[in-house]
Design a protein around this nucleic acid. Structure first.
Length: 472
RNA sequence: GGUCCCAUCGUCUAGUGGCCUAGGAUAUCGGCCUCUCACGCCGAAGACACGGGUUCGAGUCCCGUUGGGACUACCA
């Protein structure tokens, strides 16, 4: 069932914190849906909470979305700047008899609520002012005159039909005593005036939906299509939050994750396309659909993200990876002046790195002298037993260009013949000598990228090191 | 308390009444490959929450139970 009208979706974060992975997924779904159907994606800041909304969070959210590659066709709009529009709609509701002023004191309301709760009754507003036709007055709030009978039904595109008895619906406050709009009113007015056709949001909003539909009806506007996507949970099955570790998109950037991997992972958390796990962003745009969103909440599993990131690293363009790696190297005090060499290094590390951080760590030996040998490798391979092999290799390599793999292989061959050792026996000590570690990319590519100077001097250093060690 | 939503391996999921002896991925374990690591390959273990229906036949439909969750503000 394809939409006939051009579709319009939106993402309305509150700038009260960084972009959360749950929010990022909601943004992604809205964006993908709009892109998939050639529609429009709007960004809107719900910044009516003056206390907690901060400009730095606006910037952080924009930055995180941009990093993920989620761009918007309109906005960002700011609710804080739309006061007159809300006032106009509130007045319209008042004029048409769909809303009324209420002067019930908050304390009284609170008392009634408690009493109702104790008696096991539903704590909805009792309608004291509903039929009083009160005139505007200082300190009065405006309430929506909600339907009291029947039921509100809507067809959720992921959950199916959802029906709520109207007896549950409160005469909710749409304007505070200071005249400012409440959340429900603002959302509905925004979505109407911005022409939003599809609302894709977290399923913590399903029970809010009938309230909002009541506002649409009071306004005489056809409600949009709703699609409520399940929550993202932490490993303890509780709603994902900071205490589960990294919860904001920015943190993943810092940990060296690729944006396309995050996007892929987020898309697959709750949505599926048969058995496919790996998706490029283009593929997602092409295949995303509301129909294939699951109904139940999903746990954010960092292990899966890590694995998926490794897949995307392998698939990524080497030059791009090299560029992305630079900040992670600089963090470790490495300044890269030879971009071509960096690219060669990345090429060798690509199949074995899980993140950019991981890759930077593994790449260190290419760019900085060996400070100290890894303990395990030192004990096992930098000892007298391998001294002849290292010395022979050092000599064989003297006039050889390490970039010439054939020549290097020949040098190794000569050492193998003279010592009677197999390649594996020789390679490990050499590896420790030139990389400082027991694990590295293949011997020949490692040498090639390291370069003549490094290889030869490090071999000599290791030989001297062993000799010194043996002499006590 | 009320209303609403949800329920397949540890985790993400496929499954839309017979193709299910429940598939894939990830994580775990074992093996292979191999100059190390990683990749890759092979294999093991691992799930339809429970109980009733409906049906010739139910993971799939209905009801109930249990267990999770959301909402129930002059927050969003």
């Amino acid at each position: 069932m394809e939409p006939i009208e051009p579709i319009v979706t939106r993402f309305p974060p509150s700038p009260t914190g960084n972009l959360h992975v749950g929010g990022a997924r909601t943004a992604l779904f809205n964006w993908l849906y709009a892109r998939r159907h050639g529609g429009k994606f709007i960004l809107r800041m719900e910044d009516t909470d003056r206390e907690r909304s901060k400009q730095e969070y606006v910037d952080a959210i924009l930055d995180a979305l941009t990093w993920l590659g989620i761009d918007w066709d309109e906005g960002p709009h700011f609710q804080s700047r739309r006061g007159p529009i809300y006032a106009e709609y509130i007045q319209r509701l008042l004029d048409t008899g769909n809303a009324y002023y209420c002067t019930c004191p908050p304390e009284v309301l609170e008392r009634k609520r408690k009493a109702a709760l104790e008696k096991g009754q539903n704590p909805v507003y009792d309608g004291t002012c509903r039929e009083k036709s009160l005139a505007p007055r200082e300190g009065a709030v405006v309430r929506l005159k909600s339907p009291k009978t029947g039921a509100t039904v809507f067809e959720d595109r992921v959950k199916g039909p959802i029906s709520t008895p109207n007896s549950q619906l409160d005469d909710l406050i749409i304007a505070r005593s200071d005249g400012s709009p409440t959340y429900h009113l603002a959302v509905v007015v925004d979505d109407i005036t911005m022409g939003v056709t599809h609302i894709i949001r977290g399923d913590d909003h399903v029970s809010n939906t009938p309230r909002q539909i009541a506002i649409y009806k009071a306004l005489g506007v056809e409600p949009p299509v709703y699609a409520h996507v399940p929550m993202v949970l932490g490993p303890d099955k509780k709603r994902l939050s900071k205490r589960h570790g990294a919860a904001s998109v920015t943190e993943y950037r810092e940990m060296g994750y690729l944006p396309e991997a995050i996007v892929n992972f987020l898309a697959r958390l709750g949505w599926s396309h048969g058995d496919q796990e790996f998706f490029t962003v283009d593929e997602l745009e092409e295949k995303f659909s509301l129909e294939n969103i699951g109904k139940s909440a999903g746990v954010f599993d960092p292990a899966r993200l890590l694995d998926l990131n490794a897949d995307h690293m392998r698939a990524a363009d080497t030059s791009r990876l090299a560029g992305l790696l630079i900040p992670h190297l600089e963090k470790r005090g490495v300044t890269v002046e030879d971009r071509a060499r960096l690219k060669d290094a990345v090429e060798t590390l690509k199949p074995r790195a899980k993140t950019l951080e991981d890759m930077a760590e593994s790449a260190l030996f290419y760019f900085t002298p060996i400070a100290r040998y890894e303990e395990k490798g030192d004990k096992k391979f930098l000892k007298a037993e391998f001294l002849p092999a290292l010395e022979l290799l050092s000599a064989e390599l003297e006039d050889v260009d390490v970039a010439n793999q054939e020549a290097v292989e020949a040098a190794f061959g000569a050492v193998m013949e003279q010592t009677g050792l197999g390649f594996g026996k020789i390679a490990q000590p050499v590896r420790v000598a030139i990389t400082g570690k027991t694990a590295s990319p293949g011997m020949f590519e490692t040498m090639r990228v390291l370069g003549n100077e490094n290889v030869k001097s490090r071999l000599k250093n290791a030989i001297a090191y062993i000799k010194a060690k043996e002499q006590g």
